[in-house]
Structures are given as C-alpha cells and as structure tokens.
Computed example of a mutant assay.
Amino acid sequence: MRAGPPGRARDVRTGAADELATRDLSAGAGSLYPLLGRMRDSGLVVTRWDTEASTRARRYYAITPAGREHLAQFARVWHTIAPEVEQLLDQDPDHTLDAPAPQEES
C-alpha cells in the first residue's frame, strides 16, 4: 500500500499485480485481503465503508501515522539489507543458490 490517499483494496491489488507482473511475479486476492486485515488489526491502516458510491458497498483503506512509521522503519531496514541481498544474487546469476533438483516420488 502506498502512503497516499485512501484507496480501495481492489485498486491496491490491481496496482500491486501490475507492478509484480513487470517482474514476472504474481500475487492474488488471497494474499492481499488477509494482509490488509492484519494491517488493520495492527493499527497500520484504517478502513471506512462507502455505500453511496454505488449499489455495492466498498471498503477504503488509509495508512495511519503508525503505518507511516512502520513503513519508514521497514524502508530503513530494507536499505540496510538490500546490498547484501544483491550481493548474494550476484554470486548466483542463475538464481538457483545451488538448490538440488526436486526428487520425484516413486
């Protein structure tokens, strides 16, 4: 979730899906909605229902001050470990990490 104005989960999912697709990755609604629920339960986002915009109620999510702090803390940690992750990936250009081939069951 970006630290911008409130948005619907569907918009977050679509934006995230588009971003992941550019990297040949994917994540479905089955991943996003539980994550948003945990973020809400932890006080990182708040939600509000809008029943006037259409015939179907829509839930909007907005990041809280605690969520902004959590995001800033995550960014600080990520910037610390990102070079190490890059170094590991550079040591294994095929990104296999010398993983053994899966064994077939007989």
Rank of each mutant, 00 (worst) to 15 (best):
S26T: 09
E52S: 07
I81H: 00
T80C: 13
L89A: 01
V45C: 00
D90Y: 05
G67N: 09
V45E: 00
E86K: 08
R59W: 08
E104W: 01
G30Q: 04
G4P: 00
Q91H: 13
L35V: 06
H95T: 01
D50H: 06
G15E: 08
Q103N: 00
R2Q: 14
A99Y: 11
T14K: 06
T64A: 02
M1S: 00
L25C: 09
R8Y: 04
A57E: 13
G28R: 04
R48G: 04
A57N: 06
V12Q: 04
V12K: 02
R76S: 10
S54A: 15
L44R: 03
L35G: 06
Q73T: 14
D90W: 01
R58P: 01
G67A: 08
R68Y: 12
H70T: 03
I63V: 15
D11I: 11
T51I: 09
Q87V: 05
A16E: 10
I63M: 15
D92A: 12
A75W: 12
T51R: 15
D11L: 11
W78E: 10
A66G: 01
A29H: 00
T55P: 13
L20Y: 01
V77R: 12
V85I: 15
P65F: 08
E52M: 07
R10Y: 09
T14D: 08
H70E: 05
P102E: 11
P65D: 13
E52R: 14
G7T: 10
M1P: 06
T80S: 11
M39G: 08
A29Y: 07
L32F: 06
G37T: 06
A62T: 06
A29S: 02
D90I: 05
E104L: 01
Q73P: 14
D92V: 05
A75V: 11
R48C: 02
A53C: 10
S54R: 01
Q73K: 15
A53L: 14
G30N: 04
Y33I: 12
D94E: 15
R68I: 07
E86I: 12
A101E: 05
Q73G: 13
Y60W: 12
H79E: 14
A29T: 08
T96C: 10
T80M: 07
W49R: 09
A66Q: 10
D98Y: 10
A101Y: 03
V45N: 04
L88S: 12
L32H: 07
P102Y: 04
G43T: 03
W78D: 13
R2C: 15
R8V: 09
Q73A: 13
G7R: 13
G43A: 05
E86T: 05
I81K: 00
P83S: 07
T47D: 10
G30W: 07
F74H: 11
H70Y: 03
S54H: 08
Q73V: 05
G15K: 03
P65L: 02
E86D: 13
M39V: 00
A3H: 15
Q73R: 15
A9M: 12
A66E: 12
R48F: 12
T55W: 09
A99D: 04
A62H: 05
V85W: 11
S42M: 14
